[in-house]
């Protein structure tokens, strides 16, 4: 029943989904590392990106590349504004107030999109060259799958280089290590946090485009689960570790896809339950995740 092509097909689907989780986890873990904030609003940026692309490419009919750049820019600007208006004032207060505020911002953005668009989902048609079907040895995929994996890897490599090599990246790692110590050596913490938000949000917006292009549908509430699952990916990979977040994303994507693909058909509707059971198991058995350092959980 489970032929080699079927297994390969499931693995491919898992990797594509995993790439998107990894991208979201990347943005989230950088912010988490500095502010100890689970940014629920990160998921809303996915929706914002998807609808920005949809509005410019489908509704206005502008070129593909322009729409993609617009999604990127809108996501980045939103991230900057959220940090400036929402989170900056609360920094240093109780952790939970940041969490509650991010919930509020999520609800705000989601319903703003609902208000601008409609509550019904939209069919998301990416440009024709992206939906072209390929078949290699019985494994079917579209160009968009290649695009997602390639762009994800590209972004991750670029990000890893940024964090390792550039001055700003090093400042970012230092701030994650200790905000006070970073301030002492003259790092502008506000600036670093703003950069983390801008980069993470821009990447989330691009992920929104990918999500729509992959599943062919966008709706105002598409981002929530994606955002929460990205956090699950971070926990699996190990909180505070950037490579960990990426690995966690891929693992989560594979587990989710393979669970649906290989369990009996009745289990397909339990996929979210499976993801969160995995989260609770990881938190109990190995709270530091795969790559994480020790931290009180």
């Amino acid at each position: 029943m489970f032929t080699a092509t079927y297994v390969a097909q499931q693995l491919l689907n898992g990797i594509v989904l995993g790439s998107m989780y990894a991208l979201l986890a990347l943005g989230m873990t950088v912010v988490y590392g500095i502010l100890r904030l689970i940014n629920f609003a990160h998921g809303a940026l996915v929706t914002v990106g998807a609808f920005t692309f949809f509005g410019i490419f489908v509704v206005l009919g502008w070129p593909f590349a322009l729409a993609l750049v617009a999604a990127l820019v809108v996501g980045g600007v939103m991230g900057f504004l959220l940090d400036l208006v929402g989170y900056r004032k609360l920094r240093g207060g109780p952790e939970v107030s940041l969490l509650i505020t991010s919930l509020g911002i999520y609800i705000l953005l989601e319903n703003f999109i609902k208000l601008l668009a409609t509550p019904q989902p939209y069919a998301f048609r990416p440009p024709a060259f992206l939906v072209q079907l390929h078949n290699v040895g019985g494994v079917a995929f579209r160009t968009v799958d290649v695009f997602i994996v390639a762009v994800s890897v590209l972004i991750m490599v670029a990000f890893a280089l940024f964090v390792k090599r550039t001055k700003l990246g090093i400042a970012m790692r230092a701030t994650a290590e200790s905000v006070e110590a970073a301030q002492l050596v003259g790092i502008g913490v506000n600036q670093v946090v703003a950069v983390a938000f801008v980069l993470g949000s821009a990447v989330a917006a691009i992920t929104g485009f990918m999500w729509g292009a992959k599943y062919g549908q966008i709706s105002y509430d598409m981002g929530f689960m994606a955002g929460v699952k990205a956090f699950v990916a971070i926990v699996i990979g190990g909180i505070g570790s950037i490579p960990g977040a990426m690995i966690g994303g891929f693992i989560l994507g594979l587990v989710e896809t393979l669970a649906v693909g290989f369990l009996p058909p009745g289990f397909a509707e339990y996929r979210d339950a499976i993801v969160f059971t995995l989260l609770i198991l990881v938190l109990l058995l190995r709270p530091t995740g795969i790559m994480g350092r020790k931290e009180a959980v």
């Binding site: 100890r36 904030l37 689970i38 952790e95 939970v96 969490l99 929460v228 956090f231 699950v232 926990v235 993801v275 969160f276 059971t277 989260l279 609770i280 938190l283 709270p287 009180a296 959980v297």
Partner: peptide, 11 residues
């Protein structure tokens, strides 16, 4: 603790 609890209970 903290937000681990929040996300686990959400799960």
């Amino acid at each position: 603790r903290g937000h681990y609890l929040s996300v686990a209970s959400l799960g």
